[in-house]
């Protein structure tokens, strides 16, 4: 039971880390290597609001998410759209976006180091135990998990049932055909990128409740997020959530039953196996 619940909590954390990138890569086709920095920036904002203004990190999301949405929309509009326009093929865009977002990740780390210094930051919020089934769990992790479920569920419902969501999914499947049936691909992509950024920053604010972060740590989150979305299947919210939960439970089980030293090795092994047997991820459809 402990393994299951701890694993689920960890899976929720992973989902928060990866959901945003899935929107950005799945729909807007930007393999955003600066994703982790956006996450850390969300964490910084939560830290700052909590320590300076005594605003609790969950309430702070009301500010952090919209600001991140606007920032990411601007980033897409002014820095990435020129690349999208000039790209002749999907491959060319992939190369350009890797280069550009790699540069951005450097720039973001530089800005955060300059603004906040390079030191560690963390704070105590809801770091109390919650008793469930005879074991204790950190309240802040439970809160983050609940919000991960809410955010993931809301995104899935919105993508599946709303008109705009349908447009986004159409773009995810095939931008050229989507524009034929009257979808404004450019707007949909900008929306997906901005929304993805907002979700990532939200995730950052939530994980900052229990992770110790510093300005340079973003790349670790980027790598984790890449692994999760690829494992789940690009452009599919369900896949990301399922992959996150599988990884969370597998890592916890290995840590508790086998050896904590092998958790990451096990996670990557699982990832490699999934790709070998389902080359397009758990929920991915083979694309040409």
């Amino acid at each position: 039971m402990f393994i299951l619940i701890t694993g689920l909590l960890l899976g929720g954390t992973y989902a928060l880390i990866a959901l945003g990138l899935n929107l950005q890569y799945g729909v807007a086709r930007i393999m955003n290597l600066a994703n982790g920095e956006m996450l850390v920036a969300g964490g910084f904002a939560a830290f700052w609001l909590y320590t300076a203004g005594q605003i609790n990190p969950v309430a702070a999301l009301i500010v952090i998410a919209p600001v991140a949405f606007v920032v990411n929309w601007l980033v897409y509009r002014f820095m990435l759209q020129p690349l999208v326009k000039r790209a002749k093929s999907r491959g060319a865009l992939e190369v350009d976006s890797i280069l550009a977002t790699f540069g951005m990740s450097f720039a973001f780390v530089g800005i955060m180091t300059w603004a906040f210094g390079g030191g560690y930051f963390n704070y105590a919020f809801l770091a109390q135990p919650l008793e469930m089934f005879g074991s204790s769990y950190a309240q802040n992790r439970v809160v983050a998990f609940v919000l991960a479920v809410v955010i993931g569920g809301a995104l899935w419902l919105w993508l599946t049932y709303s008109r705009v969501g349908l447009n986004l999914r159409a773009v995810a499947v095939n931008p050229a055909s989507a524009s034929l049936v009257g979808v404004d691909v450019r707007r949909a992509s900008a929306l997906a990128f901005a929304l993805g950024g907002a979700v990532t920053a939200t995730g950052g604010a939530l994980v900052s409740m229990f992770f110790t972060l510093d300005a340079s740590v973003g790349v670790l989150f980027t790598m984790k997020a890449l692994i999760i979305i690829i494992m789940g299947g690009v452009g599919d919210i369900r896949g990301t959530i399922v992959a996150a939960v599988i990884l969370g439970i597998a890592e916890t089980a290995v840590a508790r039953l086998v050896d904590p030293g092998l958790t990451l090795a096990a996670a990557y092994l699982l990832f490699l196996l999934v790709l070998l047997f389902k080359p397009a991820g758990l929920f991915g459809k083979a694309r040409g």
């Binding site: 393994i3 074991s135 769990y137 229990f210 916890t252 840590a255 050896d259 904590p260 030293g261």
Partner: peptide, 17 residues
């Protein structure tokens, strides 16, 4: 006795063990 990978911050299983 156990080890955990560099950079791990999800250590509930270690403490539990």
């Amino acid at each position: 006795e156990s080890s955990y990978p560099l950079g791990t911050q999800d250590l509930a299983p270690v403490i539990d063990g």
